[in-house]
Design a protein around this nucleic acid. Structure first.
Lengths: 201, 201
DNA sequence: CCAGATATGTAGTGTTCGCTACAGATGTGG
DNA sequence: CCACATCTGTAGCGAACACTACATATCTGG
């Protein structure tokens, strides 16, 4: 009937450490030994709390997307489609080269391709990237309805485009591109959205 | 003094099979058992011919980039910067959804993040992606000199941009995006290059 | 036909992987 | 203070990993 011995570590802090290991080494490249060491716990504590390695990844992804969604709210709150794209892509240039985190994006670094027992890891990442794309698409649909985007524009295609550029920037960041290089990419990319914006008269 | 027993398999055909396994599962996700089975040989033959797993990957990358460079020659032969971007991105939409190959790009799927013994695998991939970017940059420098791109344009930034979009499209393809979706992304992306092109008079 | 050289198939090697049994520690409810 | 529930650390489990020793087979040069 008792509630048992309480856990001695903070689950969210431990998750943050695990997140960084997955971010840096990918799902398959991260070992339980590395994860437990970074989290400051032993394997049984990890398994009692998160089930298994994949459960830990999902928990880390949940935390990552939760933080990211807060930021996405600010992004789609920008007044125009062009401003949305600019705020998003410039923000990504910042975040993906923030020395406080591993470079790139966990939703890409986590594992684009995996071995035979982990086929659903890439799927998990893709699902969460798609959520981001959906948010953008909804915002661009609104922009079109408001006359901010041209009547001939395709909001879904624009959203896919911005999402693709984001991913590409993430890969660039993970392979050493600096902030200025990412900013340049973002700057060029915004022009395509601008080309789909209605003329200011 | 004799030349010994000749090898009974075709190295290039075997490489093509290995390339596909790396492409689909990534470097760390691909096992020697999978590779040898796909190549139709046994481990000792693999190690005699390619040294080790990483040597096999490099050989596969060499073959991949060799084929890809032939195509890139055609891309940069397009008459204008806009045509270069369009030919490249539309071609990528085709190639990365070609059912004859795994989806996406080997230079991304191969391994963006790796474990502790394989840190230089992501570096190898990044190096080869950079070569592609260099080809584009040189072409855009020429386009600017020819007056095809605006005097204010930044050829290096444009090349980085097209390269980033290509990578993003690859990740999209690997997570199930169909050819039409990629074409839409390419179509939007080209508009940014168009915005940097000199006006036709 | 023989000697040296290289490739092949079988059958492993040692290591590391994700994961867990178990015993002791630390909490709660009665 | 006791029964019970949960967490923690040690130590190690079976499986899969990259890789290889070794005997055999197949070639060339003489």
């Amino acid at each position: 009937m008792g509630m048992g011995r309480p856990r001695e570590f903070d689950a969210e802090m431990a998750l943050d450490q695990a997140m960084e290991v997955f971010w840096r080494h990918g799902y398959e490249g991260a070992t339980i030994a590395q994860l437990t060491e970074a989290m400051g716990i032993n394997p049984p504590s990890l398994y009692a709390c998160f089930g298994n390695k994949e459960g830990l990844l999902k928990a880390a992804l949940d935390r990552y997307t939760k933080l990211r969604n807060i930021w996405m709210e600010e992004v789609v709150a920008a007044p125009t489609a062009r401003a949305v794209a600019e705020r998003m892509l410039m923000g990504i240039a910042e975040k993906q080269t923030d020395p406080a985190n591993p470079p790139g994006c966990l939703l890409v670094q986590g594992g684009i391709a995996c071995g035979s027992g982990s086929e659903n890891v890439p799927f998990e990442l893709a699902t969460r990237r798609a959520q981001n794309e959906d948010q953008l698409r909804d915002r661009f649909i609104r922009a079109k309805a408001e006359g901010d985007l041209k009547p001939t524009s395709d909001p879904a295609a624009l959203a896919r485009y911005v999402s693709a550029v984001s991913v590409g920037m993430g890969v660039m960041a993970s392979s050493g591109a600096d902030r200025e290089a990412l900013r340049q990419v973002a700057s060029v990319a915004v022009q395509a959205v601008e080309a789909q914006s209605a003329d200011k008269t």
